[in-house]
Amino acid sequence: MLTAIAIAVDGLGFAAWLFLSSVGLTLIYGVMRILNIAHGGFYALGAYASAWGIGLYMQTGNPVGFAFLIIPVMALIAGVVAGLAIERGVLRFMYGRDEVLMVLVTYAMFLILEDVTKLIWGTDSYVAWQPAYALGTIDIAGIPYTGYKFLIIGVAMLCGGLLYWGLTHTRVGKLLLVVIEDREVSMALGINVTKFFTITFLIGATLGALGGALTAPEISVVPGIGAEIIVMAFAVIVIGGMGSIPGAIIGALIVGFARAASVHIYPPAELFSIYLVMAAVLAVKPYGLFALAEGRKI
Protein backbone atom coordinates (compact mmCIF):
# COMPACT_ATOMS: atom_id res chain seq x y z
CA MET A 1 0.00 0.00 0.00
CA LEU A 2 2.81 2.35 0.98
CA THR A 3 4.56 1.43 -2.25
CA ALA A 4 1.43 2.10 -4.27
CA ILE A 5 1.05 5.58 -2.77
CA ALA A 6 4.73 6.29 -3.31
CA ILE A 7 4.49 5.17 -6.94
CA ALA A 8 1.46 7.39 -7.47
CA VAL A 9 3.06 10.53 -6.01
CA ASP A 10 6.51 9.94 -7.49
CA GLY A 11 5.00 9.09 -10.84
CA LEU A 12 2.93 12.25 -10.84
CA GLY A 13 5.93 14.37 -9.89
CA PHE A 14 8.06 12.85 -12.61
CA ALA A 15 5.25 13.13 -15.14
CA ALA A 16 4.85 16.83 -14.38
CA TRP A 17 8.53 17.39 -15.04
CA LEU A 18 8.38 15.32 -18.22
CA PHE A 19 5.36 17.22 -19.47
CA LEU A 20 6.98 20.59 -18.89
CA SER A 21 10.14 19.42 -20.61
CA SER A 22 8.40 17.99 -23.65
CA VAL A 23 5.28 20.06 -24.34
CA GLY A 24 7.23 22.71 -26.25
CA LEU A 25 8.64 20.02 -28.49
CA THR A 26 5.24 18.59 -29.39
CA LEU A 27 3.78 22.06 -29.99
CA ILE A 28 6.53 22.97 -32.44
CA TYR A 29 6.23 19.64 -34.18
CA GLY A 30 2.46 19.91 -34.42
CA VAL A 31 2.50 23.31 -36.04
CA MET A 32 5.78 23.40 -37.91
CA ARG A 33 6.56 19.73 -38.52
CA ILE A 34 10.03 20.27 -37.12
CA LEU A 35 11.40 17.74 -34.68
CA ASN A 36 13.40 20.30 -32.79
CA ILE A 37 16.56 18.82 -31.29
CA ALA A 38 17.60 22.32 -30.22
CA HIS A 39 14.83 21.90 -27.63
CA GLY A 40 17.50 20.37 -25.38
CA GLY A 41 19.51 23.53 -25.86
CA PHE A 42 16.55 25.69 -24.76
CA TYR A 43 16.12 23.51 -21.70
CA ALA A 44 19.78 23.94 -20.78
CA LEU A 45 19.71 27.68 -21.44
CA GLY A 46 16.64 28.07 -19.23
CA ALA A 47 18.26 26.03 -16.46
CA TYR A 48 21.48 28.02 -16.57
CA ALA A 49 19.74 31.38 -16.76
CA SER A 50 17.47 30.54 -13.85
CA ALA A 51 20.22 29.08 -11.64
CA TRP A 52 22.48 32.00 -12.41
CA GLY A 53 19.74 34.57 -11.79
CA ILE A 54 18.64 32.99 -8.53
CA GLY A 55 22.26 32.74 -7.40
CA LEU A 56 22.83 36.45 -8.06
CA TYR A 57 19.59 37.40 -6.36
CA MET A 58 20.21 35.29 -3.27
CA GLN A 59 23.59 36.94 -2.78
CA THR A 60 21.79 40.23 -2.17
CA GLY A 61 20.28 38.70 0.95
CA ASN A 62 16.68 39.54 0.05
CA PRO A 63 13.79 37.18 0.92
CA VAL A 64 13.53 34.00 -1.13
CA GLY A 65 10.00 34.78 -2.36
CA PHE A 66 11.19 36.87 -5.28
CA ALA A 67 13.38 34.02 -6.47
CA PHE A 68 10.20 32.31 -7.64
CA LEU A 69 9.60 35.24 -9.95
CA ILE A 70 13.10 34.98 -11.38
CA ILE A 71 12.36 31.49 -12.72
CA PRO A 72 9.65 32.42 -15.27
CA VAL A 73 11.33 35.71 -16.12
CA MET A 74 14.62 34.01 -16.91
CA ALA A 75 12.82 31.30 -18.89
CA LEU A 76 11.05 33.96 -20.91
CA ILE A 77 14.26 35.86 -21.64
CA ALA A 78 16.22 32.73 -22.55
CA GLY A 79 13.41 31.28 -24.65
CA VAL A 80 12.61 34.44 -26.55
CA VAL A 81 16.21 35.45 -27.23
CA ALA A 82 17.39 32.01 -28.32
CA GLY A 83 14.11 31.23 -30.08
CA LEU A 84 14.15 34.46 -32.07
CA ALA A 85 17.79 34.04 -33.01
CA ILE A 86 17.24 30.53 -34.29
CA GLU A 87 13.88 31.02 -35.97
CA ARG A 88 14.60 34.38 -37.59
CA GLY A 89 18.28 33.71 -38.12
CA VAL A 90 18.19 30.21 -39.58
CA LEU A 91 14.96 28.26 -39.65
CA ARG A 92 12.84 30.67 -41.66
CA PHE A 93 15.13 30.16 -44.62
CA MET A 94 14.60 26.44 -44.43
CA TYR A 95 10.81 26.07 -44.21
CA GLY A 96 9.43 23.52 -46.59
CA ARG A 97 12.58 21.43 -46.55
CA ASP A 98 12.49 17.73 -45.80
CA GLU A 99 11.57 16.83 -42.21
CA VAL A 100 14.70 14.78 -41.72
CA LEU A 101 16.84 17.61 -43.01
CA MET A 102 15.21 19.90 -40.47
CA VAL A 103 16.14 17.45 -37.72
CA LEU A 104 19.72 17.80 -38.83
CA VAL A 105 19.47 21.60 -38.90
CA THR A 106 18.17 21.69 -35.36
CA TYR A 107 20.84 19.21 -34.33
CA ALA A 108 23.48 21.57 -35.67
CA MET A 109 21.80 24.39 -33.75
CA PHE A 110 21.85 22.22 -30.65
CA LEU A 111 25.60 21.65 -30.94
CA ILE A 112 26.14 25.38 -31.32
CA LEU A 113 23.83 26.21 -28.39
CA GLU A 114 25.72 23.73 -26.18
CA ASP A 115 28.97 25.56 -26.75
CA VAL A 116 27.35 28.98 -26.48
CA THR A 117 26.02 27.95 -23.07
CA LYS A 118 29.48 26.78 -22.15
CA LEU A 119 31.02 30.04 -23.32
CA ILE A 120 28.55 32.11 -21.28
CA TRP A 121 28.48 30.13 -18.06
CA GLY A 122 31.62 27.99 -18.15
CA THR A 123 31.73 24.38 -17.04
CA ASP A 124 31.34 24.83 -13.29
CA SER A 125 28.09 23.59 -11.85
CA TYR A 126 25.45 26.07 -10.76
CA VAL A 127 23.20 25.35 -7.81
CA ALA A 128 20.17 27.42 -6.87
CA TRP A 129 18.58 25.29 -4.19
CA GLN A 130 16.85 28.07 -2.25
CA PRO A 131 13.42 27.88 -3.94
CA ALA A 132 13.37 24.09 -3.67
CA TYR A 133 13.82 24.35 0.09
CA ALA A 134 11.64 27.39 0.65
CA LEU A 135 8.33 25.54 0.47
CA GLY A 136 9.16 22.96 3.10
CA THR A 137 7.98 19.38 2.96
CA ILE A 138 4.59 17.70 3.00
CA ASP A 139 4.19 14.21 4.44
CA ILE A 140 2.17 11.71 2.47
CA ALA A 141 1.83 8.31 4.13
CA GLY A 142 4.91 9.10 6.19
CA ILE A 143 7.09 9.96 3.21
CA PRO A 144 8.17 13.59 3.09
CA TYR A 145 7.83 15.28 -0.30
CA THR A 146 9.07 18.77 -1.04
CA GLY A 147 6.47 21.47 -1.51
CA TYR A 148 8.43 22.49 -4.59
CA LYS A 149 7.54 19.18 -6.24
CA PHE A 150 3.88 20.04 -5.84
CA LEU A 151 4.55 23.51 -7.21
CA ILE A 152 5.97 21.87 -10.34
CA ILE A 153 2.93 19.62 -10.59
CA GLY A 154 0.77 22.74 -10.28
CA VAL A 155 2.71 24.64 -12.92
CA ALA A 156 2.52 21.66 -15.28
CA MET A 157 -1.26 21.50 -14.86
CA LEU A 158 -1.50 25.26 -15.33
CA CYS A 159 0.60 25.14 -18.51
CA GLY A 160 -1.42 22.26 -19.90
CA GLY A 161 -4.65 24.03 -19.06
CA LEU A 162 -3.52 27.37 -20.47
CA LEU A 163 -2.34 25.79 -23.69
CA TYR A 164 -5.59 23.91 -24.07
CA TRP A 165 -7.66 27.00 -23.34
CA GLY A 166 -5.46 29.13 -25.58
CA LEU A 167 -5.81 26.73 -28.47
CA THR A 168 -9.53 26.21 -28.19
CA HIS A 169 -10.83 29.56 -26.94
CA THR A 170 -8.69 32.28 -28.44
CA ARG A 171 -8.58 33.49 -32.01
CA VAL A 172 -4.85 32.89 -32.36
CA GLY A 173 -5.23 29.42 -30.93
CA LYS A 174 -8.05 28.48 -33.22
CA LEU A 175 -6.08 29.67 -36.22
CA LEU A 176 -3.11 27.65 -34.99
CA LEU A 177 -5.30 24.55 -34.90
CA VAL A 178 -6.22 25.24 -38.48
CA VAL A 179 -2.55 25.48 -39.42
CA ILE A 180 -1.88 22.20 -37.60
CA GLU A 181 -4.76 20.57 -39.45
CA ASP A 182 -3.78 21.67 -42.94
CA ARG A 183 -1.03 24.10 -43.68
CA GLU A 184 -1.75 24.54 -47.36
CA VAL A 185 -5.45 25.16 -46.98
CA SER A 186 -4.82 27.68 -44.22
CA MET A 187 -2.39 29.53 -46.46
CA ALA A 188 -5.02 29.52 -49.17
CA LEU A 189 -7.50 30.96 -46.66
CA GLY A 190 -5.17 33.88 -46.10
CA ILE A 191 -3.63 32.91 -42.77
CA ASN A 192 -0.13 34.28 -42.37
CA VAL A 193 1.48 30.95 -41.69
CA THR A 194 5.00 32.35 -41.36
CA LYS A 195 3.88 34.63 -38.54
CA PHE A 196 2.32 31.68 -36.78
CA PHE A 197 5.53 29.74 -37.16
CA THR A 198 7.46 32.49 -35.41
CA ILE A 199 4.92 32.72 -32.59
CA THR A 200 4.80 28.96 -32.16
CA PHE A 201 8.55 28.62 -32.15
CA LEU A 202 8.89 31.31 -29.51
CA ILE A 203 6.23 29.71 -27.31
CA GLY A 204 7.82 26.30 -27.78
CA ALA A 205 11.29 27.61 -27.01
CA THR A 206 10.05 29.44 -23.92
CA LEU A 207 8.29 26.30 -22.70
CA GLY A 208 11.52 24.36 -23.16
CA ALA A 209 13.43 27.01 -21.24
CA LEU A 210 10.73 27.01 -18.54
CA GLY A 211 11.17 23.27 -18.12
CA GLY A 212 14.86 23.84 -17.47
CA ALA A 213 14.33 26.92 -15.33
CA LEU A 214 11.87 25.13 -13.03
CA THR A 215 14.15 22.11 -12.71
CA ALA A 216 17.23 24.19 -11.93
CA PRO A 217 16.56 24.57 -8.16
CA GLU A 218 16.26 20.79 -7.78
CA ILE A 219 19.43 19.87 -9.58
CA SER A 220 22.94 20.97 -10.18
CA VAL A 221 23.14 22.68 -13.55
CA VAL A 222 26.06 21.24 -15.48
CA PRO A 223 27.07 21.01 -19.15
CA GLY A 224 25.31 18.21 -20.97
CA ILE A 225 21.91 18.39 -19.25
CA GLY A 226 20.34 19.42 -22.57
CA ALA A 227 21.37 16.22 -24.31
CA GLU A 228 19.83 14.10 -21.57
CA ILE A 229 16.39 15.61 -21.93
CA ILE A 230 16.01 15.25 -25.71
CA VAL A 231 15.52 11.51 -26.00
CA MET A 232 13.27 11.44 -22.97
CA ALA A 233 11.10 14.21 -24.42
CA PHE A 234 11.00 12.45 -27.79
CA ALA A 235 9.81 9.26 -26.16
CA VAL A 236 7.06 11.11 -24.32
CA ILE A 237 5.66 12.82 -27.37
CA VAL A 238 5.97 9.77 -29.59
CA ILE A 239 3.99 7.73 -27.07
CA GLY A 240 1.33 10.40 -26.88
CA GLY A 241 1.24 11.08 -30.59
CA MET A 242 3.48 13.70 -32.12
CA GLY A 243 2.03 17.19 -32.20
CA SER A 244 -0.76 16.46 -29.72
CA ILE A 245 -0.95 18.40 -26.44
CA PRO A 246 -3.27 15.87 -24.71
CA GLY A 247 -0.89 13.23 -26.07
CA ALA A 248 2.03 14.88 -24.29
CA ILE A 249 0.04 14.82 -21.03
CA ILE A 250 -0.84 11.15 -21.36
CA GLY A 251 2.64 10.26 -22.59
CA ALA A 252 4.22 12.00 -19.62
CA LEU A 253 1.87 10.24 -17.20
CA ILE A 254 2.52 6.80 -18.69
CA VAL A 255 6.29 7.25 -18.67
CA GLY A 256 6.21 8.85 -15.22
CA PHE A 257 4.27 6.02 -13.62
CA ALA A 258 6.24 3.35 -15.47
CA ARG A 259 9.51 4.76 -14.22
CA ALA A 260 8.28 5.22 -10.65
CA ALA A 261 6.92 1.69 -10.63
CA SER A 262 10.18 0.20 -11.87
CA VAL A 263 12.17 2.13 -9.26
CA HIS A 264 9.99 0.85 -6.43
CA ILE A 265 9.40 -2.67 -7.65
CA TYR A 266 12.31 -3.67 -9.87
CA PRO A 267 15.09 -1.03 -9.90
CA PRO A 268 17.33 -2.62 -12.57
CA ALA A 269 14.61 -2.02 -15.18
CA GLU A 270 14.72 1.74 -14.65
CA LEU A 271 17.38 2.24 -17.29
CA PHE A 272 15.23 1.11 -20.18
CA SER A 273 11.69 1.23 -18.79
CA ILE A 274 10.93 4.32 -20.86
CA TYR A 275 11.97 2.63 -24.11
CA LEU A 276 10.09 -0.55 -23.27
CA VAL A 277 6.95 1.52 -22.76
CA MET A 278 7.56 3.34 -26.02
CA ALA A 279 8.06 0.12 -27.97
CA ALA A 280 4.99 -1.44 -26.35
CA VAL A 281 2.75 1.53 -27.06
CA LEU A 282 3.92 1.84 -30.65
CA ALA A 283 3.44 -1.88 -31.23
CA VAL A 284 -0.23 -1.43 -30.38
CA LYS A 285 -0.84 2.10 -31.62
CA PRO A 286 1.66 2.59 -34.45
CA TYR A 287 1.36 6.37 -34.50
CA GLY A 288 1.06 7.07 -30.80
CA LEU A 289 -2.02 7.35 -28.64
CA PHE A 290 -3.31 10.68 -29.89
CA ALA A 291 -1.91 10.68 -33.39
CA LEU A 292 -3.03 13.44 -35.69
CA ALA A 293 -5.01 12.24 -38.68
CA GLU A 294 -2.88 12.15 -41.81
CA GLY A 295 -4.48 12.52 -45.19
CA ARG A 296 -3.81 9.58 -47.45
CA LYS A 297 -1.91 10.62 -50.49
CA ILE A 298 -2.98 8.83 -53.65
Binding site: L35, E99, V231, F234, A235, V238, M242, L271, F272, Y275, L276, M278, A279, L282, P286, Y287, G288
Partner: peptide
Protein backbone atom coordinates in the same frame (compact mmCIF):
# COMPACT_ATOMS: atom_id res chain seq x y z
CA UNK B 1 8.63 8.45 -41.30
CA UNK B 2 9.35 9.68 -37.81
CA UNK B 3 7.69 6.64 -36.23
CA UNK B 4 10.08 4.31 -37.96
CA UNK B 5 12.87 6.51 -36.65
CA UNK B 6 11.58 6.52 -33.09
CA UNK B 7 10.75 2.82 -32.93
CA UNK B 8 14.14 1.82 -34.27
CA UNK B 9 15.63 4.17 -31.70
CA UNK B 10 13.60 2.58 -28.91
CA UNK B 11 14.74 -0.92 -29.83
CA UNK B 12 18.39 0.12 -29.96
CA UNK B 13 18.08 1.86 -26.59
CA UNK B 14 16.60 -1.26 -25.01
CA UNK B 15 19.76 -3.11 -26.04
CA UNK B 16 21.78 -0.21 -24.66
CA UNK B 17 20.00 -0.52 -21.34
CA UNK B 18 20.45 -4.29 -21.21
Amino acid sequence: EIFYAMLSLAVSMILYGL
